[in-house]
Design a protein around this nucleic acid. Structure first.
Lengths: 193, 193
DNA sequence: AACGTAGTACTGCACTCGCAGTGGTGTCAA
DNA sequence: TTGACACCACTGCGAGTGCAGTACTACGTT
């Protein structure tokens, strides 16, 4: 088992690319070799088998999904408000559109997790940590809304992302921007309007 | 190309099962044969190739996802209200949990559509029709809320379903029932409370 | 009733492809 | 020189796929 960490992440990124482009069906050790532009057999040397590769791809994808701390800090200079919440969500969507492979790969992994208990455990842990952190962060940063607000925003944005990734034409006539506005406006408790 | 419609749908249902259990990776013509308990090669006779099978699986899945008209009529005897909306959404979730294969297959198809333009077209059309019908139906039946309400309910429920299918442990501590209540309460315009 | 024909279903086979895994050789640095 | 890594060649194997041939059934004709 090889250790070179730079090459390892390069392979993982290549795997994400393959996963997004060709799906779980196309994700083979050879395909990763080819995508990464390394000689055949290299991926075999870095991962004991396909399952191992998947697990490591998952954590790598988790890393890539996290927002850029600097950009986030920049945005958070504004005073916490309803508008800021909407801006954050828009940025989330933009981030997704800018890095579709990661999100597609994550979707593939979700499905793969359906059939691999160990993967599902890892995945649940990762998402749970993300969600908890999100809730805490949202409340701490003084953004409007309670815990349920964050949960609703989470599921709704997940839905938007899934749709936008897989059937982009569906929500298009409804303008996702406005949809997000409506979402923010309404998911705050009390002052619905 | 064989025509026997009963056998054809039997094969399609078997394909849905395979798709849900083994994923797109496991969906082969032979696998469908095995799942349906028919002799090897039968599926080849009914579908010219894998792509053809996928398309037909999609429309079949669409059929299976539709709610039972009778049960729906029964539910709709109650007077349209916020509570009724919540009940309908809960039923949607129950229906999903009762027929996971269909929903999982649909998710697989969504991802597959990412790589097959013709499938994406079909899929978009199917979903668009569903969504339009849903909006119209919601408004016509006197349920509270406007068009945006239905859209929000749609994306949020999609998110809930995806999560529940793939990482069921994530939303569990938050009680999906209550989550749906909060969703309904808040996605109505004006009277957020 | 016997026969022929067409449509349908089943079965086995052969071909190809590509994957996984192993072992061996080359190369560089300590 | 030794150890770790990179690269490459080879083998065995399993899977996917399409084709060709066979069996069954229904129906119509004479």
């Amino acid at each position: 088992m090889r250790q070179n960490p730079a090459r390892r992440t390069a392979l993982l990124d290549a795997a994400i690319e393959v996963l997004a482009r060709d799906g779980s069906r196309g994700l083979t050790l050879r395909a990763v070799d080819k995508e990464a532009g390394v000689p055949t057999g290299t991926t075999t040397n870095y991962f004991t088998n396909r399952g191992d590769l998947l697990r490591q791809v998952m954590t790598r994808t988790g890393e890539r999904l996290a927002p850029d701390p600097e950009a986030l800090a920049e945005t958070m200079k504004a005073k916490p408000s309803r508008e800021l919440t909407a801006i954050l969500l828009r940025q989330l969507l933009e981030r997704m559109r800018a890095d579709k492979p990661s999100h597609l790969a994550m979707l593939e992994l979700r499905l793969e997790a359906t059939r691999r208990p160990e993967l599902q455990e890892d995945l649940t842990r990762i998402f749970a940590t993300m969600l908890d952190a999100n809730i805490k962060w949202h409340l701490d940063s003084g953004l409007p809304g309670d815990r349920d607000t964050v949960l609703l925003l989470y599921v709704a944005m997940l839905g938007v992302i899934v749709d936008d990734l897989t059937v982009p034409g569906l929500l298009e006539p409804y303008d996702t921007g406005k949809l997000i506005d409506a979402l923010v406006t309404r998911s705050l408790p009390g002052g619905g309007r």
